[in-house]
Design a protein around this nucleic acid. Structure first.
Ligand SMILES: [Zn+2]
Ligand SMILES: [Zn+2]
Ligand SMILES: [Zn+2]
Ligand SMILES: [Zn+2]
Lengths: 147, 147
DNA sequence: ACCTGTTATGATACGTTATATCATATCTAT
DNA sequence: ATAGATATGATATAACGTATCATAACAGGT
């Protein structure tokens, strides 16, 4: 059954919602613009374009929701976030972070995950979340400067 | 050549140093007392026993120095610290963190590290630091509760 | 159309984690 | 002694994250 609903707003709140309330989409767009890590407060700054009064909990709620859906990854070693590159996540990604240019790449590495579960299997530890982050230097940064 | 030095303090500063200034040792002791993650500010709290006026930079300096020497590990996914268990680190450890009891274990896993360098090797990324943290449930917590 | 319980969003305030900066003290070598 | 390098103390503030409560939107039953 399809219902057509005309919402009635008892105050001016409808106006607020013309500039629509889907922050998730906007947060994701900010992250996708960027090839590297973006902090929650950087996202917050960019979203002030749409609403100068936006507050941290709005951003963190969006980031957490997107992370649960696998659309963004939190870079635990940087307290920052990055948009996901690969569509499906069978398992946790390996994230490489170039400390020179900030670029983050994402790899699906079943061998790594299974090597990890070999280890934990021996000890009885049951892992529900894997954080695998590699810091270093990407190939273009290595080519760019002599060292 | 051995030199015997009698330090001369032009003010009362010698008294401050009877309660000696090696915070590194004290920070490490606090972490070793604990089988799990300890936040920098928890360490700070414990060190107030020795000097109520101790400030965050002192603790962070000690933690960073200890981490560089491999005596403690920073748990990036918890913004906390743990004393190292294994004496020598040929390479980055795998850290398992029980989200129930907080216990942290440390594994040396050459297979994991080499699986990781296989991946990055293909892309030209040169990794200088590896963060590998597993969240989940340790065996004693699994046995303790039915689930 | 109304009531009701549930979920999402807005808003305020606060808690936690980390560092910049500058002053002082200590050490080392000359 | 002096000077440069390194470590520590002290203050302030920046950066990151969440608890809490109020309001709004949504969906189901009457
Ligand atoms: Zn991804
Ligand atoms: Zn780079
Ligand atoms: Zn260790
Ligand atoms: Zn446990």
């Amino acid at each position: 059954m399809i219902r057509y609903i005309i919402s009635i707003y008892h105050d001016g709140s409808m106006d607020k919602h013309k500039q629509p309330s889907d922050w998730h989409t906007k947060v994701l767009a900010v992250l996708r613009k960027n090839s590297g890590a973006v902090s929650a407060y950087e996202v917050l700054g960019e979203l002030r374009v749409f609403n100068p009064k936006i507050a941290p909990p709005t951003v963190y709620r969006a980031l957490n929701a997107l992370a649960e859906r696998g659309e963004v990854h939190r870079l635990e070693s940087m307290n920052a976030y990055v948009a996901s590159r690969s569509l499906k996540h069978q398992h946790a990604p390996v994230l490489s972070i170039c400390d020179d240019c900030g670029r983050v790449e994402e790899y699906l590495a079943p061998q790594v995950i299974s090597a990890l579960s070999d280890i934990t299997g021996q000890t009885g530890f049951t892992s529900t979340r894997q954080v695998i982050e590699l810091h270093g230097r990407c190939i273009s940064c290595r080519d760019r400067v002599t060292s």
